[in-house]
Computed example of a mutant assay.
Amino acid sequence: MLAAYAVTADADDPLEALRVDQIEPPAVPDGWIEVSVRAAALNHHDVFSLRGVGLPADRLPMILGCDAAGVTSDGREVVVYPVVGDPLFGGDDETYDPRRSLLSERYPGTLAEAVRAPARNVVAKPAELSFAEAACLPTAWLTAYRALFTSADLRPGDTVLVQGAGGGFATAAVSLARAAGLRVWVTSRTPERAERAVALGAHAGFASGERLPDRVDAVLDSVGAATWSHSINSLRPGGRLVTVGTTSGPDLPNAELTKIFFRPLRVIGSTMGTRAEFERLLRFLVATGVRPVIDRTLPLADAADGFAAMIDGDLFGKIVLEP
């Protein structure tokens, strides 16, 4: 079958680690289901994998991709929930499972003509969503949903700052927050991206690092080192910084510890979401009419072009691949 997969790791030039070619289909383990992929979406996680982050050499070659929507052998239209947990984990929150992984970390991923997933990870796709729209949801949109409503515990009328504008997570956070009745601000490195975020639903856009008119109830930060100090300084006393990623790197020039304990602030790590939250996200989109922003749709054979756009930051929303 055709697939996009990592054959090595290249921290400096991740495209050199990528192959798009025919590969032997993996076996379907007991209790798993094969899904014929109709659409899959790219994430920064895939770029990190090509750089060798979280994907050791002994697991290569590895089919990339966490997100997909497709059809099962019995004709059901489904979305794949990508968090694969330890069967022995007894908790209700999969994100607390220390042995959890995502598809494409220990098990072949979704950037292929077919993907295999545990039966509990195959969730019915709402008829109101296209395959391309549904494929955008499992990673970036689920991460944004949990960050807003579980980790930050925001309520209608609260103010949230989304650091960065244009990526899959940021566009998801803006769309979900506005639909939930929050006041939404964004930062961006370019006025054009800020304007597009406002057109999408943000109430105001600001330059990266710009002082805000007021301090906010919560900040969602997927950028990391480059925005950390601004995130801390933007919070009201008792505010929450929800950190979900480090696309600019994890090493902080200043952790702002004095401000964190003196004001006092809460710093909350948030990653992905539970299967129950994923089902609530699907219902939220059906009820509100909110839909993912799709930057472009490409054939799976042209996956390298999609990866190049993501690496260069040349996108607004999600990049979708169709086998």
Rank of each mutant, 00 (worst) to 15 (best):
M1Y: 03
A3G: 03
A4T: 11
A6T: 02
A6S: 11
A6E: 09
V7M: 07
A9C: 06
D10M: 03
D13E: 14
P14K: 12
E16N: 15
Q22W: 09
P25R: 08
D30I: 00
D30L: 10
W32E: 13
W32D: 14
V35F: 07
V37I: 12
R38E: 15
A40P: 09
L42S: 12
N43F: 02
H44Y: 15
H45G: 08
H45V: 14
S49Y: 14
S49R: 12
R51A: 04
G52T: 11
R59S: 10
R59T: 15
P61Y: 12
I63F: 11
I63E: 01
G70T: 05
V71W: 06
T72R: 04
Y81M: 07
Y81V: 03
G85K: 00
F89M: 05
D92T: 12
D93M: 02
S101I: 00
S101T: 14
S101W: 09
L103C: 02
E105M: 08
A117V: 13
P118W: 06
A119P: 09
A127M: 05
E128M: 13
E128Y: 03
A135M: 05
A135Q: 10
A135W: 04
A135D: 10
L137M: 11
T139F: 10
A140Q: 11
W141A: 14
L142A: 10
A144E: 00
L148Y: 10
A152G: 12
A152C: 10
V160R: 02
A165M: 02
A170W: 04
V174K: 02
V174R: 03
V174S: 01
S175C: 08
A179D: 05
A180P: 01
G181P: 02
R183D: 09
P191F: 04
A199C: 04
G201W: 01
H203C: 09
G205H: 01
F206D: 14
F206W: 09
G209L: 13
E210L: 14
E210W: 06
E210P: 02
D221C: 07
D221R: 00
G224S: 09
A225G: 10
A226Q: 10
S229G: 12
S231R: 00
S234D: 11
G239D: 11
G239L: 12
R240W: 05
R240M: 04
R240F: 08
T246P: 00
T247K: 01
G249S: 06
D251M: 08
E256W: 01
L257H: 13
K259T: 13
F261D: 04
F261T: 10
R266L: 09
S270T: 09
T271M: 04
E277R: 11
F278L: 13
R283F: 01
P299I: 07
A301R: 09
D302F: 07
F307W: 07
A309S: 14
A309W: 03
M310Y: 03
D314H: 12
D314S: 12
F316S: 05
F316Y: 06
